[in-house]
């Protein structure tokens, strides 16, 4: 991260904008839940908005947009294994159907 005070002040303005976006997206998530969508579209909408919010927090508050390659590499491996974890229920469900 930069040490330049002017750059930091610019970052502060970005943090406030991101905060407003996060608050708006939170209200949007709750509003979308009142649409009474069928389960699958409801899951997709909720997870899409949550992913947007997570991207904003990780990208700006955790400074991942300007982070060094070594950190990005660690996270890439983490994301891979996280996806494997999320796929495990699907694997076990399909094995239930086979048996």
């Amino acid at each position: 991260m930069t040490d330049n005070p002017e750059e930091i002040k610019k970052h502060v303005k970005v943090y406030i904008t991101v905060f407003a976006a996060l608050a708006f997206l939170t209200v949007l998530t709750v509003a979308a839940s009142y649409l009474k969508l069928p389960l699958v579209p409801a899951i997709l909408v909720a997870l899409f908005i949550a992913s947007l919010k997570a991207g904003l927090v990780a990208g700006f508050f955790m400074h991942l947009l300007s982070e060094k390659q070594v950190i990005i590499s660690i996270l890439a491996v983490t994301v891979f294994f996280f996806v494997v974890l999320m796929l495990l229920p699907a694997l076990s469900s399909s094995s239930l159907y086979v048996s």
Partner: peptide, 17 residues
């Protein structure tokens, strides 16, 4: 921020779906 991130997913998954 990570603790915040976890809640961002917990909230819709448990409360809204």
């Amino acid at each position: 921020h990570f603790v915040d991130l976890v809640w961002i997913f917990l909230f819709p998954v448990l409360y809204l779906l």
